[in-house]
C-alpha cells in the first residue's frame, strides 16, 4: 500500500508541474504576452515599457524558471484589474464554488443510486426504459439552458426561489440542480449497469440460496459492490462538474471562481485566468488522488495488484 501511495503521489506531482507549464504557455499562445495584457488602445511605447518591466524580452527558459520560482510560492502576479495578488483572489472564491459543486454532487448521488438500483431490479420493464430515456435526456440538456428555464419558471413566474446570488439554502437549489442533472443521468446509468453485473455474480446466488431476504441481498451484498466503480467515476467527473459550475455560476451570478474567471477573461486580466486554471486543475488532481487512495482502501484487489 505504501508504494502505491508513493507512486500515486509522484504521478500527481508530475501532473501539477505539467499543469503549471501549460498555464505558463497560455500567455505565449498569442505570440506577445505584452500586447495581450495591455489595454487594446495602448501605444507601442507603453507596450514596450510593460514588456521590459515584466521581462518578456528574456529567453523563454529564463522566463519559465522565473515563473516556476514564483509559482511554487503561489505567486501568479497581480491582477491587472484589482491590483492585488491573483492567487488569493481565486482562493477566496473557492469556498463558494466548492459549496455549489459539493451540493450538486450530493444531490446527484442521492437521486442516482435509488434510480439506478430500481431500474436494474426492474430490468426491461417500462420503468427501466423510461428511466434510461430520462437519464439520456438529462445528459443532453445544456446546463445553462436548464438554468435559464428554471429561473424563468421558479423565480420569475412563480416567485418561489431567488434568481441569483449566494445566500441560504434557497439560493443554492436552482444552481445545484442545473449542475446535478447531467451528473445524475450519468451516475444513474452507471449504477444500473454495475448493479446488473453484480446481481449476476455467484455470491449473490449464494446469498439468496442461504435464504437472506431480498432487501438485504440487494442492499448489503449487491449495492456495496456496485458502488465501488461509482467512487472512481465521481472522482473523474469532478473536472467536468467544475466546468459546469463555471457556466452555471455566470447564469446565477454565483460569486465563485467560475464567474470571477469569466469576468477576468472578458477584462483580459490574464494573471487571474492563469491562477484560476492552475487552482482548478490542481483541485481536480487532488480529488483524483484522494479518490484513488480511498479506492485502494475500499477494494483490496487494487492495492494487492499494484504491489
Amino acid at each position: 500500500m505504501a508504494s502505491y501511495i508513493i507512486r500515486r503521489l509522484v504521478t500527481s506531482i508530475f501532473v501539477v508541474v505539467g499543469v503549471s507549464a501549460v498555464v505558463f504557455c497560455l500567455t505565449f499562445l498569442s505570440g506577445d504576452p505584452a500586447v495581450l495584457m495591455m489595454p487594446p488602445n495602448s501605444t507601442a511605447e507603453e507596450i514596450r515599457a510593460f514588456r521590459e518591466q515584466q521581462g518578456y524580452d528574456d529567453p523563454i527558459l529564463v522566463q519559465y524558471a522565473r515563473y516556476m520560482q514564483r509559482a511554487v510560492q503561489g505567486d501568479f502576479g497581480d491582477s491587472i484589474i484589482h491590483g492585488q495578488a491573483a492567487l488569493p483572489l481565486i482562493v477566496n472564491r473557492l469556498p463558494a464554488t466548492l459549496e455549489l459543486t459539493v451540493a450538486s454532487m450530493i444531490l446527484a448521488i442521492c437521486l442516482a443510486i435509488p434510480l439506478g438500483v430500481f431500474s436494474a431490479l426492474r430490468r426491461g420493464t417500462i420503468f427501466d426504459l423510461g428511466g434510461m430515456l430520462v437519464a439520456l435526456i438529462g445528459q443532453s440538456v445544456p446546463s445553462f439552458w436548464l438554468a435559464i428555464m428554471m429561473i424563468y419558471l421558479f423565480s420569475v413566474t412563480w416567485g418561489l426561489l431567488p434568481t441569483s446570488g449566494r445566500g441560504g439554502l434557497t439560493h443554492l437549489i436552482l444552481p445545484a440542480i442545473a449542475i446535478a442533472v447531467g451528473l445524475m443521468a450519468l451516475l444513474t446509468r452507471l449504477v444500473r449497469s454495475t448493479m446488473l453485473e453484480v446481481l449476476g455474480e455467484d455470491y449473490i446466488r449464494t446469498a439468496r440460496a442461504k435464504g437472506i431476504r431480498e432487501m438485504l441481498v440487494v442492499s448489503r451484498h449487491a449495492l456495496r459492490n456496485a458502488l465501488i466503480p461509482l467512487v472512481t467515476v465521481i472522482g473523474l467527473q469532478f473536472g467536468y462538474i467544475l466546468g459546469s459550475a463555471v457556466v452555471v455560476e455566470t447564469v446565477f451570478t454565483w460569486p465563485g471562481v467560475g464567474l470571477f474567471t469569466i469576468q477576468a477573461i472578458t477584462n483580459r486580466d490574464y494573471p487571474v485566468v492563469q491562477a484560476s486554471v492552475f487552482v482548478l486543475a490542481t483541485a481536480v488532481v487532488m480529488i483524483n488522488l484522494i479518490v484513488d487512495l480511498v479506492y485502494g482502501f475500499l477494494d483490496p484487489r487494487i492495492r494487492v495488484g499494484t504491489n
Binding site: V15, G18, V19, L236, G243, V277, A281, V284, V285, N288
Partner: peptide, 9 residues
C-alpha cells in the same frame, strides 16, 4: 495532464 483541466476553462 489533459484530463486534469476543467476542459471548458
Amino acid at each position: 495532464l489533459n484530463l486534469a483541466f476543467p476542459l471548458i476553462l
